[in-house]
Design a binder for these strands. Structure first.
Lengths: 110, 110
DNA sequence: ATCATGCTTAGCCATAAAGCTAAGTATCAC
DNA sequence: GTGATACTTAGCTTTATGGCTAAGCATGAT
């Protein structure tokens, strides 16, 4: 397939890692510095920085240098695209999952 | 981070690829055989089969052998978990993005 | 000026992902 | 039973991902 929806790919990719999802959840509670964000994970700083850059490249968070700290915060509308995609596909799926199709499926089995 | 939410990871990972998203969209329009699913992508069958197994492992689709064809169809509630996660996080983010915080952020900049 | 703190960069390693070809198996049509 | 069709499996290559260590740079405190 071609390179459609690069943003969507980046967003889903970013959210596919538990460490990054934990970071996103942490940022829901308010901005945090890198060290603060790294602490609950037990991972080293360079590793966390890479995760941060993935989240930032996906447009999910933004960071800003303040003194020797880097402050990270969520980007407000960033997940709308992904949510919309999911909602749309799910709606289509549920629309198709009526008794008629279940019946056809059962009949095909025999 | 630990191995929390393995399902969520699998789902987001599965959806992070444009080819797989196209397959998911195609299946929204109705069940399809493997070859049929492969056609618009221009990719070889083994490649498509691997994508299929990723989608199936994530619980997003199910497949069934019918004669020499394998019929693929969506699994109805499969994306709810991902959608819920996104909705929850987005709600938190939007709740935090009021004028107060924007103001504090601006003040910190100076 | 010096030192600690907090990030940053460079680079290595192991594993997984995404594509391919080639060769196999199973079913349907004749 | 032979041949075409539709997967399927095995195995290879390239690139990306997720972790690390070691060493560097910038800032704040003394």
């Amino acid at each position: 397939m071609a390179k459609h929806d690069p943003d969507l790919s980046l967003i889903f990719q970013a959210l596919s890692d538990p460490t990054r999802r934990a970071m996103v959840l942490r940022l829901s509670a308010g901005p945090a510095a890198v060290t603060e964000l790294a602490e609950p994970s037990g991972l080293r700083l360079p590793t966390i920085l890479r995760h941060l850059s993935v989240l930032e490249a996906a447009g999910l968070i933004e960071t800003r240098k303040s003194g020797r700290s880097r402050i990270c915060r969520p980007v407000p509308g960033a997940m709308a695209q992904a949510e919309d995609w999911l909602a749309r596909v799910r709606a289509d799926w549920e629309a198709r999952t009526d008794r008629l199709e279940a019946l056809l499926s059962t009949m095909e089995d025999e």
